[in-house]
Nucleic acid binder design. Structure first.
Lengths: 151, 151
DNA sequence: GAAGAACAGTTCAAGATTCAACTACATTCC
DNA sequence: GGAATGTAGTTGAATCTTGAACTGTTCTTC
């Protein structure tokens, strides 16, 4: 009795689930990223940013809100938006009623790039994920991820 | 009829599952990484490398095999092992029967660092993932991730 | 047994990410 | 109203990642 039993370990089954999860995660992410990159020149994060913007009111979002929405640090978002701005897909606009703030605004080119990327990307997501699962599995996966996504 | 219907889109439910998955993924990973980093100075990838080595025969693995096992590029592994070597947690040994190759070998310090990190990390994994799920959900999650981890 | 292909691993340089300052504006509260 | 505190976003430097090119070894096949 060393005191070790006050720490909860993972059961054998939990451990194997956890490792599968880690492998699945990193495989899915790296494959989708590579394919998206190759076919549209966008990273997964850039794609996510464009999606968020395209769905927002006026196709624009405040930096802070956008950062939360795609789950990256403020600093990383700043750099990322700078790059997207260089590509012509996003532009910054100062925010009228909060002079500290900026809007990141989707440009027409950005919308077009997103549209061009979306089709192939979605096909890959389907192929890589949903085609491998039964409807019941998808159902439970949704419940599980719903529970896990909360902070 | 624009031809768009030849592409399979995601259903509304699939889309929402997919987005939950992405958010859950990035939250889990960034939280665990931050905590691990803070409490033991290891990144999640470094932790994974030490785990793989600790479980391997002779606590050593060839670079290539190790790279596959933790799912990173050869190049990234080279850099990562260089850093772990600087920290004193791993050392490289030339491979006797294949003169192109090297073993990455876990040092005593590396084993100790892993042991020190493991307890807290596992507690976080439990707290962040398994405590939120019912046994049935864990069961299905395992099946699903088993299907998704294959290349 | 030699030529050519494949493989293990590293290197280099470009680009991305991180983290802690930092600036500038907003809010609170006395 | 003004000092203190909080928030939005950027900057800079150090670190990390990426991908292609490269070295040296092994495997194949004729």
């Amino acid at each position: 009795m060393t005191g070790m039993d006050t720490v909860e370990w993972l059961s054998g089954h939990e451990q194997s689930v956890w490792r599968s999860l880690l492998r699945a995660q990193s495989r899915i992410e790296s494959e989708l990223d590579r394919d998206l990159q190759r076919e549209s020149g966008l990273s997964l994060v850039e794609y996510g940013i464009l999606v968020s913007l395209s769905e927002a009111d006026g196709e624009r979002m405040r930096m802070r809100h956008l950062a939360d929405s795609v789950i990256v640090s403020k600093s990383r978002l700043t750099h990322q938006i700078t790059r997207l701005e260089r590509m012509g897909y996003v532009r910054r606009e100062p925010c009228a009623d909060d002079r500290r703030g900026y809007w990141a605004v989707l440009t027409a080119e950005g919308g077009a790039a997103l549209a061009a990327a979306a089709r192939g990307h979605v096909a890959k997501v389907r192929e890589r994920v949903f085609d491998r699962l039964t409807p019941d599995q998808v159902q439970v996966l949704g419940e599980v991820m719903g529970a896990l996504e909360r902070p």
